[in-house]
Amino acid sequence: MSELYNTDILRLTTRIPHQTRLESPDVTAVKTSRVCGSRLTADAVIQKGAITAFGQEVKACALGQAAAAIVGEHVVGLTENELSGVADQFRTMIKTGETKFPEKWSKLALLAPVKDHPGRQGSVMLSFQVLEQIFADARKSNESAA
């Protein structure tokens, strides 16, 4: 038993924003955790390097849902550069427990106890992985169009 699934985390599972898939996304990405089978599917519209519309379907454990809820709060307006910084800090947190985020991303620290649960880390990383994929695909698409 762990304190991983605490009240804050459980509350977040019912507050996942952007749960309506987009009808005409620029990019769609799917990521699945090999460890637990959690899956996140996301659509995005990207303009001038920032996400302007986002839709996601989250089939994950409570931790994956909580991560999707926190990331989803700030996904509109997100750039690849900002994502890269926050994702790096998040990876550091789940390795070392160190919580060092910009103020607006501070809720990610709620997931710090996952450090001691390697089996749950795949699920909480999905939101970041899917966004990284979205930006990478958008970049490729722009390059091939240029």
């Binding site: 459980l10 509350r11 019912t14």
Partner: peptide, 21 residues
């Protein structure tokens, strides 16, 4: 646990995975 016990259909379907949990 944050889920309405009498949700609308769209809310129920969007949160179907969590309702089943």
């Amino acid at each position: 646990y944050g889920l309405p016990t009498k949700p609308g259909l769209d809310y129920f379907l969007v949160n179907f995975v969590r309702y089943r949990q």
